[in-house]
């Protein structure tokens, strides 16, 4: 176990070193990610200049909702870059190298790479939005709310990690899953930037039960903010984020374990 932690440390040190080898480049690229993702926030901001609120949510509350999405993604991508880029890893032959080495495949995929630019860009935006909004949304921050918040973030990280693990596993059967990831993950995330109560029932269904972004930010935010539109959903959803996270991750992990036996290296 100590040896595993040591190896994880060596991996992390080396990847961080190579990502930040050129400092100006690192800062600019992280900034680029930050600005790209900020456009969504800016759209919300200008929309709210025209309307006072969105189904009862004011500007700061919306920014708070948004911050959870990016904070969890920023943390998640530190661990799951290897799964996000799994298709490339397979095509470039790097996955064959992992297979040849006497270590767990998932362990190597998780620790051998981390997209630090995405982590800093997304996580940074999440942090900025949180700092801007947290004091102005009427949440009393005490031990209970803080613990709830941290557990919710951890659950959100697991939910998204499970989706990435699932999509990576599909790569073993299908040659290319990039467009599926665009559709299922990145496009659905755009919806999750808003209170889901404003959408058609079908969209709500997808975002709660199929690609459950609602448990990443909407329901945790509801626990803390208690908006009126929560009346449309079961109260239990406020507490389910960690359960959904662990459950999804477990399922994705079993699917991975089952599928990886069928991975085929090419003959040449």
């Amino acid at each position: 176990m100590r040896d595993v932690i040591h190896l994880a440390g060596v991996y992390t040190k080396i990847t961080a070193k190579s990502w930040f080898q050129y400092r100006v480049d690192a800062v600019l690229r992280s900034l680029a990610v930050f600005l790209r993702e900020s456009t969504g926030v800016i759209v919300i901001y200008f929309t709210l200049l025209k309307f006072d609120d969105l189904n009862g949510w004011n500007t700061h509350e919306l920014l708070f909702l948004y911050s959870l999405l990016f904070l969890t993604y920023g943390i998640m991508i530190i661990f799951f870059t290897g799964l996000r880029d799994f298709g490339n890893t397979v095509r470039s032959g790097n996955f064959d190298r992992f297979i040849l080495r006497p270590r767990g495949l998932l362990f190597q995929l998780i620790f051998a790479n981390a997209d630090w630019f995405a982590a800093v860009g997304h996580g940074g935006l999440g942090l900025v939005l949180f700092l801007v909004s947290a004091g102005k949304v009427g949440v009393t921050w005490n031990l209970e709310t803080a613990v709830y918040y941290l557990v919710a973030v951890a659950g959100g990280v697991l939910i998204q990690g499970a989706v990435f693990l699932f999509l990576a596993t599909l790569n073993i059967y299908l040659f290319e899953t990039r467009s599926l990831k665009e559709l299922l993950y990145y496009n659905m995330r755009k919806f999750a930037g808003y209170p889901i109560s404003i959408f058609h029932k079908a969209v709500q269904f997808i975002i709660i039960y199929i690609m459950p972004f609602a448990f990443v930010n909407y329901f945790p935010a509801q626990y803390l903010l208690r908006k009126e539109d929560m009346a449309g959903y079961p109260q239990a959803f406020l507490y389910l984020t960690p359960v959904v996270g662990i459950g999804m991750y477990l399922l994705a992990y079993l699917f991975w374990r089952y599928s990886v036996r069928y991975y085929k290296s090419s003959g040449n």
Binding site: I14, S18, W19, S92, G93, N94, R97, A112, N113
Partner: peptide, 8 residues
């Protein structure tokens, strides 16, 4: 089959 990571 790359044995060393290209970024390292």
């Amino acid at each position: 089959l790359p044995l060393l990571d290209r970024n390292d």
